[in-house]
């Protein structure tokens, strides 16, 4: 699909499945974002915080999820983006990114968005309003 205008309400964008989450992914995000909370990069610190191992930054997953909309940059922009972080993302988890068009109104396209792990559990869930030019 080349244009969002062709997308009907109730239909979804092509899903994206990420490569298994690696430590390097999280080290890179820590460096790029400036979020050096060690529960995202150092096993011992994660265990001290009562976690079985390091977990991804919620914002890493939220950042990834937005890329479903990047190919449509010439048609509009992400005007509103809201999510809840509802599950932890661990090393080697396989995350799938999804967006379903719920409604179109006045050039505003409202999507339900979610990042789902390999157990089919939602880890991030929210909404995007894509505003068409």
């Amino acid at each position: 699909m080349n244009s969002l205008s062709d997308l009907q309400e109730g239909k979804s964008l092509q899903v994206i499945q990420l490569k298994p989450v690696s430590r390097l992914d999280l080290i890179k995000y820590a460096g790029a974002s400036g979020d050096y909370n060690p529960i995202h990069t150092i096993d011992e610190e994660a265990r001290k915080a009562g976690l079985p191992g390091i977990i991804a930054h919620g914002m890493w997953t939220m950042g990834n999820l937005a890329k479903l909309f990047t190919p449509y940059y010439h048609e509009g922009f992400v005007k509103d983006y809201s999510v809840r972080f509802i599950g932890k993302v661990f090393l080697n988890d396989v995350i799938t990114l999804k967006a379903t068009l719920k409604e179109k109104f006045d050039q505003q396209y409202r999507f339900d968005v979610a990042a789902v792990n390999q157990h089919d559990s939602e880890v991030v869930k929210g909404e995007v309003i894509f505003s068409k030019y």
Binding site: G63, N64, A66, K67, T70, Y73
Partner: peptide, 26 residues
């Protein structure tokens, strides 16, 4: 910083990092 960030979220799209693509955009 934008390039590094786009790469870190696995979205190194030309609209974020390629100057020419940027110039041609709105």
């Amino acid at each position: 910083a934008v390039k590094k960030f786009a790469e870190a979220i696995g979205d190194p799209h030309p609209i974020f990092i390629d100057e020419e693509t940027g110039k041609k955009s709105r």
